[in-house]
C-alpha cells in the first residue's frame, strides 16, 4: 500500500515536524519503514551527505574509506561526521563536505563502496533520513521534528516486492544529481525490463525496491536534459504500473499519476502553504480546520508546486 506526503511552507520553518505528523497519520499504510526528504537552508557551496553503513562493527574503516574517496576528488569534511549507532546492525551518518571537483565522478567512485557504506542523499539543502520502523520511531531516532526548512517529502512503506531493509526505504535520491529525491506509492510492473535497460546504460541499483527505479529513471531523463515537468509527463507513458510518485528538488515538488488512477493524492493549498498526502485525514493533521481539498483522482495527471520563499527566516 504505502503512503506518501509532501509539505511546502510559506516561510521556512519546522517542516520536519509537519512531515512527521503527515506520516504518523498514514502509518497504517505501511510501518515497515519511514523516510523523510527535508530541504533546509540552501548553502552556496558544499554538500550535506546522509547515508548508512551496513556493518556497525566495521564503521570506522568504512567511514574512513568513504572520506578517502571524498578527498580523492578534491573535497574534504567540513566537520566531524555525525554517526548514529543505535541500530542492531547498520549505522547512519551525516557529513558536511566541500565541493568535489566533479560531483558525478565522485558519486560514481563513492558508489563502488555501496556494498558496505551507501550515500543516500547529497544536497546543498536536501537531507534524506530513512530507517526501518514507523514515523514516530524514526523521527525520534533521527531528530526529524527539529529539522527546519522550506519543503520536504515523507514516505511510509509497506514492503511488497522487496525486503524490509533500512536502505530499501524511501525517499530515494536521484543520484548523482544533488537535491533530487522521490517518494512513490504503487507498483512498477516493468521494473526488471527498465532496470536491465538502465543498467546497460551504466546506472547502478542499490536495492531491489521497484521505487528506486523511478529515481534512476528520473536521473536518466535529467541526464538527457529533460526538465522536471517534462520528466513527469513522460513517466506516465514510459513507466508501467500503478503509481503516484512525487519528485522534489530545491525549487519545489512535482507529482505524476499513472494511467489507471489507482493511487490517490490529496492536497490542501492555502496560498502556497501546502500539504499533500495519500489520504485526506493526513493533511488534516496539518490543516485541522475545514479546507478546500483538492483530490487528484484522475488518470495521467502531473503537476508541480513551487516553493515561494527560499530565504530562511532569521
Amino acid at each position: 500500500m504505502c503512503g506518501i506526503a509532501g509539505r511546502i511552507l510559506n516561510a521556512p520553518g519546522k517542516v520536519g515536524r509537519d512531515l512527521v505528523e503527515l506520516m504518523d497519520a498514514q502509518e497504517h499504510r505501511g510501518a515497515d519503514s519511514t523516510g523523510f526528504a527535508i530541504y533546509g537552508t540552501p548553502r552556496d557551496t558544499g554538500y550535506v551527505l546522509r547515508g548508512m553503513g551496513f556493518d556497525k562493527a566495521k564503521m570506522d574503516a568504512d567511514v574512513a574509506d568513504l572520506v578517502n574517496v571524498i578527498r580523492d576528488h578534491g573535497a574534504d569534511l567540513l566537520g566531524d561526521p555525525q554517526l548514529l549507532t543505535d541500530s542492531a546492525a547498520h549505522f547512519c551518518f551525516r557529513m558536511e563536505i566541500s565541493d568535489p571537483r566533479d560531483l558525478k565522478a565522485w558519486v560514481a567512485d563513492a558508489d563502488t563502496l555501496t556494498d558496505r557504506i551507501e550515500i543516500q542523499s547529497c544536497g546543498r539543502s536536501l537531507e534524506i533520513i530513512k530507517d526501518v520502523g514507523g514515523a514516530i520511531a524514526v523521527a525520534d531516532k533521527h531528530g526529524v521534528r527539529d529539522m527546519e526548512g522550506t519543503h520536504g517529502l515523507g514516505h511510509a512503506r509497506l514492503a511488497t516486492e522487496s525486503s524490509v531493509l533500512p536502505n530499501a526505504s524511501h525517499p530515494f535520491w536521484a543520484r548523482p544529481f544533488s537535491d533530487v529525491a522521490i517518494v512513490h506509492n504503487g507498483q512498477i510492473t516493468d521494473y526488471f525490463t527498465w532496470r536491465e535497460k538502465l543498467e546497460r546504460r551504466g546506472y547502478r541499483f542499490l536495492t531491489g525496491n521497484d521505487s528506486e527505479l523511478i529515481a534512476v529513471w528520473v536521473s536518466d531523463q535529467m541526464k538527457d536534459g529533460l526538465t522536471m515537468e517534462q520528466a513527469l509527463k513522460k513517466s506516465i507513458t514510459s513507466i508501467d504500473g500503478v503509481f503516484t510518485f512525487m519528485i522534489a528538488n530545491t525549487d519545489g515538488i512535482g507529482f505524476a499519476k499513472d494511467r489507471f488512477a489507482m493511487k490517490p493524492l490529496v492536497v490542501i493549498d492555502h496560498g502556497g502553504d501546502l500539504a499533500m498526502a495519500t489520504e485526506e485525514q493526513a493533511v488534516r493533521r496539518v490543516f485541522a480546520e475545514e479546507s478546500d481539498v483538492i483530490n487528484y483522482d484522475g488518470p495521467s495527471l502531473t503537476g508541480i508546486w513551487g516553493v515561494g520563499n527560499l530565504a530562511m527566516a532569521a
Partner: peptide, 8 residues
C-alpha cells in the same frame, strides 16, 4: 458527528 477531520 462533529470534529470528523476526514477520519476513515
Amino acid at each position: 458527528v462533529v470534529n470528523t477531520l476526514s477520519r476513515h
